[in-house]
């Protein structure tokens, strides 16, 4: 029930506090509806994080701004501004605000991947960033 509510709040853009686990589970549930049997994978998330899509010259990969590890502070590839680490272990507020997470997936996926990310990619990504040691 909680997952359904979370998916609903994602879809309607409402902000509701959540944990990275809940948020990841909501994306995984959505992915499983599109591809029955879907299981999130931290390994696929890691590959996605490091992959050079090279759609944008200045923002070729997620790691261009977030560095090669989600545990490290990043730096915006164009403006130079510091970015806090993506891993909840290093920055507690990560993946806790569904509306914020959706907004940055939308922006960063459009710029870096050249399209919206799928629910499966988001579930993998969150699992990878939360599992980072």
């Amino acid at each position: 029930m909680k997952q359904v509510l979370l998916v609903l709040s994602l879809a309607s853009g409402l902000a509701a506090a959540a944990s990275p686990q809940e948020l990841g589970a909501a994306y995984a549930a959505e992915a499983a509806r599109q591809a029955p049997g879907f299981q999130p994978s931290a390994r696929r998330g890691a590959e996605f994080y490091a992959r050079r899509f090279a759609v944008s010259e200045k923002m070729p990969a997620c790691s261009a701004c977030h560095t090669e590890s989600p545990l490290q502070p990043g730096r915006h590839a164009v403006t130079g501004k510091a970015i806090k680490p993506l891993a909840p272990r290093a920055e507690a507020a990560r993946f806790s605000d569904p509306a914020k997470v959706e907004k940055w997936f939308r922006r960063n996926c459009t710029e870096v991947v050249g399209r919206a990310c799928s629910a499966a990619e988001k579930a993998d990504f969150i699992l990878f960033a939360s599992a980072a040691l």
């Binding site: 853009g13 944008s56 200045k58 164009v78 939308r106 922006r107 459009t110 710029e111």
Partner: peptide, 9 residues
């Protein structure tokens, strides 16, 4: 937005 996407509701 200067080569980036800063769109808002």
């Amino acid at each position: 937005h200067y080569g980036d996407n800063a769109s808002l509701d």
